[in-house]
Design a binder for these strands. Structure first.
Lengths: 343, 343
DNA sequence: TGAGTTTTCCAAAGCGCTTTGGAAAATATT
DNA sequence: AATATTTTCCAAAGCGCTTTGGAAAACTCA
């Protein structure tokens, strides 16, 4: 069923039917209802390509995921983020267009194609690095975009939504300091990732404000896997001057750290405290009455929802200033922390 | 830059330019090269909506994710599966269209819209349940589709690609039996999920063939979270007749089980053996020289690649029989299993 | 050289929608 | 009752591409 057929069925012109369905005021309520009813009955919806061609809109938003680094791209946060974003898209009639860039191929070429083909109305930039080149590139290319996170070294204005990673790790480190911990290890994400960079800043700034010397030998950065948490923690525990607390960048790393602690015959929350950042992934609950881990919490899913709303505003209003939004985390006390052991 | 402008630039008709770019034989090599070069230089690519309208193809493939059950939908496997699928799509010029269905909304309505709007050329059905209604629905609707997994109770032919979950769990259970284990617990996924159903069949069939009575009190099914693994295992260990081995449906559950074992002061691979299914998620390596877990392995990413190739064949060849493909798993021995304790 | 064949190219229609500019019908105003 | 205004509707153009049906140009063969 297409517009022509529907309008013939109703004995109306295509114009009137189109206007009735798109909410134009020039059509009477009576005919509008008649048209809407018929459209529903016949399962009519305007052909997406035709409508896009006529309006110049793609009604799609692009997400480009580069798989060059096998671990970072398919990160565990991805699913929840996408779920949040996608919910909002669908409420506004947008489709999400996911483009996976196979290893060895050029991510920028995908954006160029988006532009040339008008495949998307806007783009979401995920997992920015400290000096992410995509921001400048997209600005030049002229595709509206919003960044999930920020790029510290990028000085031009651009739209972003980020968690306050710095203050999160300041608070986490302060919290451990208040419990008497003076030797606190950091298991961070990859250091060129902007979020990891800011978390490290927060960690260092807290230590410095308490007069504690920063010790690079207990600071690590890597892909956030379980075995990373396990191995680094095992090494730390065996070292001459082991930490009394560990700060990790994700629940998955924290699980590995906890395993190492337990395997060493120590108790988490007593011998060793662990604080982690928690993205509230749907398959890693950390929400018992007293949660498993003390954590800086921030729902990546809600971040996705909010980000999508900002982006849709940007599309509707192309001349607005690039919006920015900084989400604060919640520090929740769980079972994984306690006073520093005195010995 | 559009086709008209490009053709004027080249002093050719739009037809010739279009044909040159689309590889038609009626155009000389010399003009073809000239056209291709100019297209590249001017970053020309055919407008997606216009091309779609003219050809009747959407050049997109739909993935519909319902978030009604918060945990299942955003499952940890999703990211890797999508990465595999997406790599292949992009090689063939297809885009992946992801539609998230918010809680409370109707997944079928999304498919109806896909059909009415011609948004996609085909659809991928993920996480089928035992009696999944989407298969019949899509068949009636007339959208080409392929299922990742199967629906045991569905008797009509349809295209699918699945892991041999049954034989995987037969082999895993046999393996434990060979090690002397007679009391083997099962921590399965949700039972209405087809993969869980088949795994349970495999588990039961192996036990029966060895004359072991099936004991429902040590068989569980749930969303595959870490805390599920932890809690059920803790309960099992405290019970009157604890198992000597545990079979889990995912690495994440296995991590929880291991935590419970360790917390009970027992050693995995000695006091308690664990075998898990391993989807080879990119952020959960289980691939040391001697892997952490004994596991039935099957890369969900490769499954995605293969599935995408089958689907693209189906689109190119609408009258072909629905292809089906069953992938066998690899059983790799890790550190988490050993002979049943004798006491 | 002239007819037949192949190569190379083009004008124009059509995909299904939105939207402009304007006409006809209904209602309001004098 | 005659005119002005609003409401309701429509014909047709245009979005950028593919593709049909054919024409012109170049080449082959007798």
């Amino acid at each position: 069923m297409n517009l022509k057929e529907l309008s013939e069925l109703l004995n109306l012109s295509q114009t009137t039917v189109s206007r009735a369905l798109n909410g134009f005021p020039e059509v009477s309520e009576r005919t509008r209802e008649r048209v809407q009813k018929a459209a529903k009955q016949n399962n009519y919806a305007p052909n997406k390509a035709a409508r896009g061609l006529a309006t110049g809109q793609a009604l799609s938003i692009g997400h480009v995921i580069s798989t060059t680094n096998q671990n970072e791209m398919v990160n565990p946060v991805f699913g929840d983020f996408v779920a949040g974003v996608g919910e909002v898209y669908s409420k506004h009639g947008y489709k999400m267009l996911l483009s996976i860039v196979p290893p060895g191929e050029d991510e920028y070429q995908v954006y160029r194609e988006f532009k040339a083909q008008s495949t998307v109305d806007a783009v979401v930039v995920q997992s920015p690095s400290v000096d992410d080149g995509r921001i400048e590139f997209l600005n030049k290319l002229g595709i509206p975009f919003i960044v999930h996170g920020r790029a510290s070294e990028c000085k031009v204005p651009y739209a972003w939504l980020d968690v306050n990673n710095r203050s999160a790790f300041v608070r986490a480190t302060n919290f451990l300091h208040d419990l008497g911990h003076r030797r606190i290890a950091l298991l961070n994400g990859r250091e060129h990732m902007d979020f990891a960079h800011r978390r490290q800043q927060g960690y260092e700034s807290s230590l410095q404000s308490h007069g504690i010397t920063i010790d690079p030998s207990i600071m690590f950065s890597s892909d956030m896997t379980e075995s990373y948490g396990y191995q680094r923690t095992t090494e730390l525990l065996k070292s001459d001057n082991p930490p009394t607390a560990i700060l990790t960048a994700s629940i998955i790393v924290a699980l590995g750290a906890r395993r190492a602690v337990q395997q060493a015959g120590l108790t988490v929350g007593q011998d060793i405290s662990i604080v982690t950042h928690d993205d509230r992934l749907s398959y890693f609950h950390n929400t018992a009455d007293v949660p498993m881990f003390t954590a800086t919490k921030s729902s990546v899913r809600e971040a996705g929802q909010r980000l999508a709303e900002l982006l849709i505003q940007m599309i509707a209003n192309p001349n607005m200033e690039p919006p920015t939004e900084l989400l604060e985390v919640e520090l929740t006390i769980g079972k994984s922390t306690g006073p520093a052991p005195t010995n």
